[in-house]
Design a protein around this nucleic acid. Structure first.
Lengths: 185, 185, 185, 185
DNA sequence: TTTT
DNA sequence: TTTT
């Protein structure tokens, strides 16, 4: 696949509703979500605090759709990278209608759940045991870690020589990072 | 102004038509352009080369709109950074319609003309008279180079009365946020 | 200010340490943070799970630096938008060294704290009272919500003397570029 | 492959030199290029036009490296999407050194040549036959013959009053920038 | 409707 | 319809 031009959308926002999942005849999943982004400012004239929310239709396909269906819920905060796509359809009066969506699909599509299980707080003297679950819904299967970008599976091939063992991820998807690692600066 | 979330669109593509410019009652300019991005691929089943073009509505405001009107033309290649915005309106039957646009405005808006005016080449010993027009339209004023990020300058327009001198942002001799700059338009 | 070209970095990751804050002679703040992004994959050859973490130096200036100092802590998850900058310096042996940082500053700089105070979860039957504070450090001032894009407010700092009232950007009742905004810090 | 976090760099700029291509033992190609992005502004204190150029090291892998080697040349304008990566190495004194690069690889890597075959101009009534070859290097294979345009705008911008004739373009597309500058690597 |  |  080749492309002339760049068509990229980046969103960080919260879901307005639980995802709607459906399946193609092929068995492939599609998830539709709506994401809110908002801006707030003080109105100069009235001095009032004002806010404007923009709602975005997002369609995820394939593996990302499955992850969305499993882990995202109304209110979940999410990072989305996709492309703009406008579909033409006809309403009941037979009139052309256009709907623009952010399509998250294939290699360029990214979906990352944010907030995770709450990190941070140590600097605040917060015990970890007090930290409650966060941003994501309860997985159907306890198994895998949801916060993923599934696009680049090919990456594997690029560094096959790397052999270091790793411990399994926790079910609430802890930051896999080891902050005591040697930060190289 | 504050925002919760990120709402960002990045496009690189070509204009389908000359820009349409209009002016607000305040005198501020608005430019509407349509930008094509396309993808091509070989169809696995048929072996044919296929292509799909996506058209994007883009609305530029303020100084960027003026620049677009002056320098962009049908076919011009452009880099756009803006945000998604869906407007609701009513058609002649009184039915609600929604239109999604990429709005390029204020600090986060960027418009960069690409491909340049065909020039360069001094290092190659080339004379300018042989250089032909490039990607951009002919400016009304022959003078300065158009390829710029005008985001900051838009500020000028919003509050042209701001004439207070500004100190450099920091001591590192960085580019200051220089709203009074009069170049190049 | 004008620019030829685009120089943009987008990061979503977790802080490796508490921010380090210092102040310029002008009183302007600078915050240095390190952010980790990581990738994990299953090694095809061995079947093991592997992970690689990339550490990023990020320097925030002005208002964003102050917000970072107040609210970010080791482990905090954050969205960053800035630009690449390579500084040259000399080590104790007098040799040239180069350090590349992501500079978050001015109009194009964005810093958004992620994860918030724990939202979501309602769809899961989670009582809100059980939700604990999340991803951010405890603010010095109890007041306002930190998750914001402070880019515009930085302007305030650069030219705090600018007090002239501003008219709305356009008649559409858009968020004005509102530098005098006093929220939330 | 999965990732926690986002690590993304977007650049639009011009090559400081022809690409350097080498091949891995596997036969896979690697291309190293340097890309300039610049900002210009008028210095408030002195009234002088000032400019700062940032140079970026970019490493492309695989197919994109081959394309870069074939079509890109010193001065070519290019869109790059990749990720930040810092490598540690040792200099001849055995001291640790760090080099940060933009790695363009795999699914998330994008490289698009800009400027293309010149669009625009029609609205200006300019004849196409006058258009000169452009932004890309001469392909090894006659097949894809990219043409077109180029930009000395920067020069123009620094000294817009310059009207001196410029020399004709060569087929390898000269840089608009002053590449005799010290590239800091 | 662009571009290749 | 989210979030703060």
């Amino acid at each position: 696949m080749a492309s002339r031009g760049v068509n990229k959308v980046i969103l960080v926002g919260n879901l307005g509703n639980d995802p709607e999942i459906r399946y193609m005849p092929s068995g492939s999943a599609v998830a539709n979500i709506t994401i809110a982004t908002s801006e707030s400012w003080r109105d100069k004239a009235t001095g009032e605090q004002r806010e404007k929310t923009e709602w975005h239709r997002v369609a995820l396909f394939g593996k990302l759709a499955e992850v969305a269906g499993e882990y995202l819920r109304k209110g979940s905060q999410v990072y989305i990278e996709g492309q703009l796509q406008t579909r033409k359809w006809q309403n009941q009066q037979g009139q052309d209608q256009y709907t623009t969506e952010v399509v998250v699909q294939g290699f360029n599509g990214v979906m990352q759940m944010l907030g995770g299980r709450q990190g941070g707080g140590q600097g605040q003297g917060m015990g970890q045991q007090q930290q409650q679950q966060g941003n994501w819904g309860k997985p159907q299967q306890p198994a895998a870690a949801p916060q993923q970008n599934f696009a680049p599976q090919q990456q594997q091939q690029q560094a096959p020589q790397q052999q270091a063992p790793q411990q399994p991820q926790q079910q609430y998807n802890e930051p896999p990072m080891d902050f005591d690692d040697d930060i190289p600066f």
